[in-house]
Design a protein around this nucleic acid. Sequence first.
DNA 1: ATATAATGTGAACACTTGTATTATAAACCG
DNA 2: CGGTTTATAATACAAGTGTTCACATTATAT
Lengths: 220, 220
Amino acid sequence: MYYKPEIIIRIQKKHRRKDNKTIDTRQALFDAVLELMNRDKSFEAISLREVTREVGINPSAFYRHFPDMNTLGLELVSLSFKTLRQLLKEVRANPVQGSNVIRKSVETFVTYVLAHPRHYHFVIRARLGGVATIRTAIDSELRLLVSELSTDLAQQLNTDTWSTDELKMLAGLMVGAMTRIVEQLLIDNRYHQNIVELIDLGEKQLRLILLGASQWRSQT
Amino acid sequence: MYYKPEIIIRIQKKHRRKDNKTIDTRQALFDAVLELMNRDKSFEAISLREVTREVGINPSAFYRHFPDMNTLGLELVSLSFKTLRQLLKEVRANPVQGSNVIRKSVETFVTYVLAHPRHYHFVIRARLGGVATIRTAIDSELRLLVSELSTDLAQQLNTDTWSTDELKMLAGLMVGAMTRIVEQLLIDNRYHQNIVELIDLGEKQLRLILLGASQWRSQT
DNA sequence: ATATAATGTGAACACTTGTATTATAAACCG
DNA sequence: CGGTTTATAATACAAGTGTTCACATTATAT
């Protein structure tokens, strides 16, 4: 009898693409979906065949990597948030110093989003899209983000005047404002809002929110 | 030669639905799309045939009312915003009086949204959906809303400390917060957030924003 | 009552879709 | 090397799609 390892190491096939670069097919499938969404398709409207066509493989080969489009989408969600979580980790490790903290934070955030535009484009679009499982996955990731941010805020604010619910309320407001900025940054930027203007906008909104927070008094 | 009237009065056919209520087919098509979106489909993923099936007419009959799904969607956008615009008109005519202005405003807004849930469900979903024309239509409606709100705010705030851009920034923050509330109200309300909690949340967020606004000083 | 315009039907078209089966080719391991 | 696993291809099928066309029905107005 042979020893059967519990952990199966997934060996990934290489596949040759149009541009002659070899790439993991699995990764290529992710990229294809992101690319198709970037061409103005909602995730739900992307067919399995379209994806494989984009990658350049046979439709049936798709099933070697994912049972269906839905699970691909779910993996794409956790993949996208993994990178964001890492950014926040780094920021927490090296807190922004000096004056203009808000400005600098918004700047690093925006440049980060612009470094991974497809992932955030996907998240923002799928957040309210037609596939319930993906929607809820994104939603719980965002809720996690709000929770983390509210514990961070708890250390900065007076816990006498701030209940945990109110901290979440504040964090939600901040995350919401930043989400808006990302939306304007990545979708239909036809109003010629340049990046600097958007950073300006985000900075001012955050500043106003934090100004309100500094004056906050809990009213039953 | 006959007199050709410039204004063509559209005579609408009655159509019998499952529930035996007669209804304009055109209206029935709108309703069918809203209903299908309510069953967790993004607009882009709804087929013309599905819609006609829902209404109970032949697919080809669709073309008697709309040239394609896209224009139906665009009409649905202006239809949805027409009702919202009316609410705001009424509010402006009869401003909320007395104490707790913010609370009352949020309450009337929420009850209003709950009175037309399908329309706002559609708007919120299609805002970031896959069809570019619809997306931009919704976006410009929202921008109009922000502009209107910022002129309203201009009358309440000191114009020395508030530039028009900053007024829009503030209005955008408020509209954004309310949009969030509607999203949580109409989509996947699986966290059992009841309506009162959501009104509470919205009220606090608006209060915090306005608190910040009252302290605002423009920083170049 | 009858002509006219507005709405609806039914069948057909050329495509696209997801998935299953069977076969081929490539990578891996002993 | 040879054998086994894994990835991909080829082909097929039933079901669904948008759109068109010729025709039938219904409503309205003269």
